[in-house]
């Protein structure tokens, strides 16, 4: 466990500085697989109802108020680890999709309601993208969302620079307008590939 704490601390430093997420030199990555129609149901039930509040204080459930599909990620607004890669990717994918005529809401549900309050989430997320929706709430309300999406997380340590550091689930969920889970997406995919996948579910 001490090894993991050390690694996480170093990883956080690397991701937060952009060193891991945004290297200046890129190399040929393996080509993305063509989207196939082969689909297997996952062995878990994912998704369900929740009642939270967004960064403006407005209540929000699993149903998108604007009738959009949703990309939902569980993390925290100033997380220096995987969130610093996943949240910009979600915002980029949403922007790509908007250009293709499909509006999608990128949503962060916090795993730390003390850190992420109505007052603090907006400014922190705006540093990444003003399109991001941040959801928080009391622990009971958040627990319902965690249970519905089978989210696990564990506080690893308090970093003197970044505050609380968590190890947490990192897959992104694609929800329809009513909040039903359509699929899950690894946070390592490029925004173009995520946009292509979302378009298939949008029927485009």
């Amino acid at each position: 466990m001490r090894l993991r704490n050390l690694l996480l601390a170093v990883a956080c430093s690397g991701l937060a500085s952009g060193a891991l997420a945004h290297g200046t030199e890129t190399h040929a990555a393996p080509p993305a697989l063509a989207l196939s129609d082969q689909v297997t149901a996952l062995p878990w039930k994912l998704g369900g109802a929740f009642e939270l509040v967004d960064q403006t204080g407005a209540p929000r459930t699993q149903t998108d108020p604007d009738g959009r599909m949703q990309l939902v990620f569980f993390g925290y607004a100033n997380c220096p680890g995987i969130c610093s890669a996943a949240l910009p990717m979600m915002a980029d994918a949403a922007e790509l999709l908007e250009r293709r005529g499909i509006t999608v809401s990128p949503v962060l549900i916090t795993i730390d309601p003390v850190l992420d309050t109505v007052e603090t989430m907006g400014p922190a997320l705006a540093k990444i993208s003003t399109d991001l929706v941040g959801l928080t709430g009391d622990r009971e309300a958040l627990s319902e969302a965690y249970d519905a999406f089978q989210i696990d997380f564990e506080k690893i340590m308090d970093d003197p620079e970044y505050g609380p550091i968590y190890a947490h689930s990192s897959h992104i969920f694609l929800l329809d307008q009513a909040g039903k889970v359509l699929t899950l997406l690894p946070p390592v995919l490029p925004p173009e590939q995520v946009a292509d996948i979302v378009m298939k579910y949008a029927g485009s």
């Binding site: 689909v39 149901a41 089978q150 039903k180 889970v181 298939k200 029927g203």
Partner: peptide
């Protein structure tokens, strides 16, 4: 973790028949 093996409760998928 509440990992429920509920293969019968399929995610709604619009694309293809589910295995």
């Amino acid at each position: 973790r509440k990992q429920l093996l509920m293969a019968a409760m399929l995610l709604p998928l619009p694309i293809a028949a589910l295995a």
